[in-house]
Structure formats: C-alpha cells, structure tokens
Amino acid sequence: MKRGNPALAAYVTLVYFFLLGPLFIVAAAAFSGSNFLEFPPSSLSLKWFANILAVSAFLETFIVSLQIAVLGTFLSLVIGVPAAYALSRSAVPGRGVLQAIFVSPVIVPGVVLGFSLLRFYNVQGGVPVFQTLLIGHTLIVLPYSIRVISSSLANFEPAIEEAAISLGCPRWRTFFVVVLPNIRAGVMAAFILAFITSMNNVPVSVFLTGPGVSTLPIQMLSYVENFFDPTIASLSVVLIATTAGFMFLIERTLGLSYFAR
C-alpha cells in the first residue's frame, strides 16, 4: 500500500480473524479429550481422529462421494470441453444463448434441483439413487468445467492451431495434438474445482439418499444433528487439510488469481 491507512488495516485484520478463526477453533476442538465439543479443549487426545474410522458410515459414504465426484467431473469435462472449444473458436448464431444455457445449472437452487431429480427420475422414473445422484452432480459441476476451460481457451493463441490446420492437420487431430496439451493446466484446474464442488455438495445430495447410498457431507450432517462429540471436528481437520493440498495444486497449475475473476 502506498499510503497505509491504520484504521483500514485494523478493520481488515478483524475481517480475517472472522474468516480464519472458526477453522482454527474447529481444528483445536478436534484434539480435545472431552466427550463434548469444547473450545479451548480441557484435555488433549487423538481419540476422535480414531473414531472417524470406527464409524463405518464415514468410510462408506466417502467412497460413494468419491465415485460420484470422479465420474461426475469426468462426464462434465467430456461433455463440456467440446462445447467450450466449439463456442470459443466460432461465432455461430445463438452462441450467447448456448453459453447461457450451459452455465444455467448454477442458478437453479440446489434444493430445487435435488427435489426435482428425486421426484422425476427416482420416484417417477425408477432410476436408482446412485445414477440420479450422478446426473445431479454432473449438472452442478458442468458450469465450473465450461467456465474454466473457456477462460483457458481464451488465453490460448488461435494462431498456433491455425498454423497446424493450414499445414494440413485435420481439425480433430489439431485439437488433440495442439490444443489439448496447451490447455492442460486449465483442464487440471477445472477437474479440481469441479471435484471439490461435487465432494462438498449438500442441497442436491440431501434429497438423494437411499439404502446403502449417501454421500459424506450428508452423513456428516446427520452425525452433527445426532451426536455432540468432536468426531466431526476431527473429520473437518482432515477435509481442511485435503482442501489446502488441492489449493496448492491449483496454485501450481493455474495460479490462485483465477479465483479473483
């Protein structure tokens, strides 16, 4: 800052206390030896971390979450990348409308989407819960995939691929040999963002649970509502650490400035 304003700096410090404090408090409560959630903890222990593994539902729902997130993200990229590429390289009539359609799932409220999918596919259509969840998660991550891939394509110089095409390389081959390797970082970032979005989703998944099928956030939600011990705090520490690891990956691939856009 050129002329530092102490009042502003103090205000911003408080805002960051508000942003980060709760995560620190959860982390501290996770190491409590008490049977109740407390901060500051009166004794220290790792037993609540062990309890994550003792509650088998956490591992089971984690596996479902992982399957849905990986499959949904993969599908959204397979479907989203061709669309993003086509729209970035040609000004077809209706381009704006198509772009708006592709990011529209983000403005549908999550609970509305979850309820509608449950009603239409699972209850009326007889589609199993897992497949319905997969449709839902593919839909909610599609806008993220398309947005990140589009911005990554916009930064890629079209002259490079035009050179390949003018030298006789077919367009589909140019895409795989020239374009795709150059937007690697964007694809990676899209995958991570979509994956995190899917792993964290509650409002869509909360409607789509069935025998043997539920996701980790939903399991955590019901655990918080029924138990008051620090297990969720320990699990939160694991998840926050994983998120921080992913952020490190994004920082390395696309740069964190991506988020401030």
């Binding site: 960051y16 980060l20 709760p22 109740f36 959630l37 407390e38 400035s257």
Partner: peptide, 29 residues
C-alpha cells in the same frame, strides 16, 4: 490474502457451519 479468503470458500459448508456450533454452542468458546 486471496489465498486466505479462498481456503474457507473451498471448505465444505458442513464444516463451516459446524464451526459456529463449536463457537456458539452451550460449551462453545
């Protein structure tokens, strides 16, 4: 500073809401 704003954003909403149970609960901070 951007990093510190993004970290909570990417953290599960269950964790973030839960943190306020730890802070505001009966035996909370």
């Amino acid at each position: 500073l951007i990093l510190c704003a993004v970290l909570p954003l990417l953290t599960s909403s269950v964790v973030r809401s839960f943190s306020w149970i730890v802070i505001l609960g009966r035996k909370g901070s």
